[in-house]
Design a protein around this nucleic acid. Structure first.
Lengths: 243, 243
DNA sequence: CGTGAGATTGACTATATTCAACCCTAGTGG
DNA sequence: CCACTAGGGTTGAATATAGTCAATCTCACG
C-alpha cells in the first residue's frame, strides 16, 4: 500500500469531531481513541482496501473523498457509495468487505486497528450507537440511490448528483458559495450514476446550454438556478428537506 | 389499516426464532419480548406502512413477503428491498420511514410498540447487536442491488433474481426442491429490477426457450440448469458462495 | 513545446420502452 | 353449467434513450 503516515492532530481540534464515529464520546472515551489512532494519507487514485482482503484497520475519513465500488468480471463497475469526511470504513464483526475502497481525491484517514477498536465498541455504547446511526444513514442513502439507478433518466441522474454536491457544500460552509468542486472525473461520475462517461458529458453540456449550470473549468461549476435544477431531478416539489 | 390481529404463538415455537431480531436473546429477554408482542396479518396488496407516516410499531416478518418501495411524482416506482421471514421493519431512533411497506403475499408480522421496544433495546445489548447485524446485512444486499440496477442487462437482472429465489429456497427447505413459488407479479418484479413488465415477461420467455428454466404455471418455475443460470447472471464464477 | 489523460462531440447502433393487440385462467353470476 | 369478466401475462411493431465507436479538443505537466 503506497500510503503515508502522519502525526495525528488532537481529537479536540478535529474537523469531524462532532460527526464521526466519536461524535458522542466523552473526554475519557476520546482519550482511549486518541491513544489508538494513526493517520494515513492516500493520493488520488490509490486503492485503500481491496474487496475480500482481510481488514487490518477501520477508519474515519478526515478529509477528501473515497469511493466504494463493485466490479464485474468483464470490467463493468458501479460505485455503491461515496465516503465524505466523517464517514466510516469497516464494520464491527466483519473481517472483510464486499467492495473496493478507492481514494478519488487525496484523502486523510484516522485509522484504528480492527481488534482493539472492536473491543472498545463492546464496552462503549456511545460508539456502538453512533456506528448504528452511521450504518442506517448509509442504508437510507443506498436506497435513494437505488431509485436513481433503477428509474431515473440520464438527465435526472446528473441533476440529482449536482444537487447533492450543492446541498453538501451548503452544509459544510454555510454561507454564499461560489464555484463548487467536482471531486470525481467524468468516468467516476458515470460509474456512480450507472451511465457511460459520454452520456455524463452530454448531459453536463445540455444543462449548461439550458443555463442551469455553468462550468468555470472542467472540475468547477456554479448552479445558476437551484429551483430549475431541482425541477430536473424528478424528485418531490420540496425534496423532503426544504433548502 | 385493514389488518387482522391474531393470537401470537410462543417464541420458543417460532419459526424465525433463530434468525430474527430476537436470535441472541436468552430466556429472560425472550419473556420480556413475549409480553410485548402482538401478531398482525395483512392480505396480499395491503399497505403495511406509508412513507412519512409516524411509526407506531416495529415488527419482524414471521411469514410471507413484504416489499419496500419508493415512488416518484409521475408514478415510476422502484422497490428498494424485499422483506422475507425474519427481516425487521423499523429502526431505533427513527419515528418514520422513507419508503412504503406493502404486503406482496399474505403476511404475518410479530409487532412491538415502538417506544417500549426502544427502551428494551437500550438495556439489552443482545437485541441491539442483532439489530446492527440485520442493518449491515441489508446494507450489503442494497449494494449488490445497486450493481444490478446500474450495470446489469435485462437478462442478467432476471437471471440474478431467479438465482436469488432459488438460493433462498434451498436455505429454507434444505433438500431437493421441485417447483418454486414466484412471490411477485410481473409488474412487481419489474419494479424490483428496474425494468418494465413487458421486458420481464420477454426475458422469462427467452430463458425458457433456452431451456434454462421452465414454468409449470405463471407463478411456479423450475430451474433446469443451475450452472447455466448462473452463467447468465454476470456474477463471478462461483458467486462468492459456492452452492 | 510535446505529450497524454481527461473531456467533448458526432454518427451510428443496440437495448429496453412504449403502445397496442391478444391470450389465459380463476372467479362470478346468470 | 357455462359464458363473461377482469386481472395478469404474453407477444409484436415501432420508438426512444443511452451505449458504442471514433475523431477531435483542452490543458496541465514534464
Amino acid at each position: 500500500m503506497n500510503n503515508a503516515l502522519l502525526a495525528p492532530i488532537k481529537c479536540g481540534d478535529c474537523p469531524i469531531r462532532h460527526r464521526a464515529v466519536c461524535a458522542r464520546c466523552d473526554d475519557d472515551e476520546l482519550t482511549q481513541l486518541e491513544s489508538m489512532k494513526t493517520y494515513r494519507t492516500f493520493a488520488a487514485g490509490d486503492v485503500v482496501l481491496w474487496r475480500g482482503e482481510p481488514l487490518e484497520f477501520v477508519a474515519s475519513v478526515v478529509s477528501g473523498v473515497a469511493s466504494l465500488s463493485k466490479t464485474m468480471e468483464d470490467g463493468r463497475t458501479q460505485m455503491v457509495g461515496l465516503l465524505l469526511p466523517s464517514d466510516f470504513i469497516g464494520r464491527p464483526g466483519r473481517t472483510e468487505i464486499e467492495f473496493d475502497v478507492t481514494a478519488t481525491t487525496e484523502i486523510t484517514l484516522c485509522c484504528f486497528s480492527r481488534l482493539p477498536f472492536e473491543k472498545l465498541v463492546d464496552r462503549t455504547p456511545h460508539v456502538a450507537q453512533r456506528l448504528m446511526e452511521l450504518a442506517l444513514d448509509e442504508l437510507d442513502a443506498a436506497r435513494d440511490w437505488m431509485l436513481l439507478l433503477g428509474r431515473k433518466t440520464a438527465r435526472e441522474k446528473i441533476a440529482t448528483f449536482i444537487e447533492m454536491l450543492t446541498r453538501r457544500a451548503q452544509l459544510d460552509q454555510s454561507g454564499s458559495v461560489e464555484a463548487l468542486d467536482l471531486p470525481l472525473t467524468r468516468d467516476q461520475i458515470a460509474n456512480y450514476l450507472g451511465l457511460t462517461l459520454e452520456t455524463v458529458s452530454r448531459q453536463f453540456s445540455a444543462l449548461k446550454k439550458d443555463g442551469i449550470i455553468d462550468f468555470s473549468d472542467r472540475r468547477h461549476f456554479v448552479v445558476n438556478d437551484l429551483a430549475a435544477l431541482h425541477e430536473e431531478t424528478g424528485d418531490d416539489a420540496d425534496g423532503g428537506i426544504l433548502s
